[in-house]
């Protein structure tokens, strides 16, 4: 068991990277990157929910929880992400 070099820390690096990516998408005007504002919005939401899933599974340790609780978490992420994407596309 290593304090710093472990799976949670690699997950953390992925979270930082994801933050950087959504910062680029959100601040550089989307047209510069070659996709429309609608695509940019959906992408930003999807990245946010990928981050949320990582926090739930690895930091809040649902990954290692009994399967019913783990799948509640997975279902919550998918449901919430689809509802928010649906509302933005309305």
């Amino acid at each position: 068991m290593n304090l710093v070099f472990n799976k949670a820390s690699s997950v953390w690096l992925v979270l930082i990277l994801a933050t950087a990516i959504s910062w680029v998408i959100g601040t550089d005007s989307a047209s510069q990157l070659g996709f429309g504002p609608e695509t940019a919005r959906v992408l930003i939401l999807i990245i946010a929910f990928i981050k949320i899933r990582l926090v739930l599974m690895h930091f809040m340790e649902l990954n290692n929880a009994p399967r019913s609780l783990k799948w509640t978490g997975e279902a919550w992420v998918v449901l919430m992400c689809s509802v928010l994407i649906a509302v933005t596309l309305l």
């Binding site: 959504s22 910062w23 998408i25 959100g26 601040t27 005007s29 989307a30 504002p37 940019a40 919005r41 930003i44 939401l45 990245i47 946010a48 929910f49 981050k51 949320i52 926090v55 933005t88």
Partner: peptide
């Protein structure tokens, strides 16, 4: 905050 941040600052 991971959701609030893009909703308030990044969406166009």
């Amino acid at each position: 905050w991971i959701v609030i941040f893009p909703l308030l600052y990044l969406l166009r």
